[in-house]
Computed example of a mutant assay.
Amino acid sequence: MNQQIRELIHDHKSTITDEWMKEVEKFREDDYLQSISDTVYQNTNSEFVDMLFKTVGQEGEGVADSIRNYTDRLIQLGWPLNYIIRGMQEFRKVAVETLIRHDDQTRDIEFYQEVEDWVDEIVNILVGHYSGSWENTVFLQKMALKELSAPLIPVFDNISVMPLIGTIDTERAKQIMENLLTGVIEHRSQVVLIDITGVPVVDTMVAHHIIQASEAVRLVGAKCILVGIRPEIAQTIVNLGIDLGKFPTKSTLKKGIESALEMTSHQIVEIEE
């Protein structure tokens, strides 16, 4: 960066910072940062703009590392990338307008190009690191969900339960199917109870996936019982005209286990003391 432009930026650091802080305050509510306290908001913005000024005229991997380290903090605090990009756009605008007001020599193509290159480099590093960090986070979360999602739990000899929690989409339905079939073979289950107590909505697609799962269980020699049918779920199923008549349904897991025990010629007997 041109030495004269570098000195001008540093000379007017205070003015640029004050103007920038006023501008970003205007769109704070648009970026879901209302939950952040005023103190944290002001301090984080101050640290951010200080980091920007430290990069003036600097080049190399050290500058990139400094920006990446600060980006990690923003990600941990939950600051959206959209806010950061808008903040950089406002910073570019405020920096150019401030310098033009205070020095006529900045009104040339070289000046604009220098500022553009400086801000663009920072934006590229921010976006690249933000994207990489979120992709890695999403990947780890998906792996964790796969490990925890839809486990098949053996509860008695030849009886297993699969508790389902949360929304079921196509990708998760595939995972459910794989876990179900693998678990039935591994645990030698004769009866599987699919518990949908924790599924908030059962629509046509979810019902279709459940029917497919029950049919798959039947093909490998086991039987399926659907449990956790709440009144509102039952009403939805009827209104949608979904046919769940091919396999038994029970309102609670307890009733489902009782039916499973009967189907496997077992029963729970109370022992008198």
Rank of each mutant, 00 (worst) to 15 (best):
D243T: 01
P248G: 10
K13I: 10
P80S: 14
L81W: 13
R68M: 05
S214F: 00
Q212S: 12
I242Q: 14
Q89E: 11
H129D: 07
Q141R: 14
G221D: 11
D72L: 04
K26Y: 07
V201W: 03
R230Y: 13
Q3L: 08
A173M: 15
I67Y: 09
N43R: 14
L244S: 09
G128C: 06
H102G: 00
I176H: 10
Q235G: 09
R6E: 15
Y32G: 02
I194M: 13
G183E: 10
D117V: 04
G60F: 05
M205A: 14
F91A: 13
M88V: 06
Q89S: 06
K223L: 10
E7P: 02
V269L: 10
V115T: 08
L219K: 05
I211C: 00
V115M: 11
D30H: 06
E110P: 00
V40I: 13
R101T: 09
I85R: 03
G62T: 00
D104F: 11
I225D: 00
T55W: 06
V138A: 06
N136C: 13
I9K: 06
K223D: 13
Y32M: 01
E272C: 05
G62L: 00
D195S: 01
A150W: 07
T39L: 01
T264M: 05
T137A: 15
Q42M: 00
S35Q: 15
V123N: 08
Y130A: 08
Y70A: 08
I165F: 09
I153K: 11
E116G: 12
Y70I: 09
P231A: 05
K26V: 10
E171S: 13
S265D: 15
V138K: 07
D108G: 09
R188M: 05
G87F: 12
T236Q: 15
T182W: 08
F53N: 02
G60S: 06
D169C: 04
E29N: 07
L74W: 12
K246H: 13
Q58E: 12
E47W: 07
L152R: 05
L33K: 00
V127N: 08
E121F: 15
L52Q: 15
I271P: 11
K255C: 10
V119Y: 08
V49I: 09
V201N: 03
N2L: 03
D65Q: 08
Q42I: 01
M21R: 07
Q141F: 08
L148W: 15
N239L: 09
W134G: 07
T17Q: 09
P163W: 10
Q4W: 10
P151Y: 07
I85F: 00
P248H: 12
S66M: 15
I257R: 03
V199I: 02
G241C: 09
S251T: 15
K54I: 00
V49M: 01
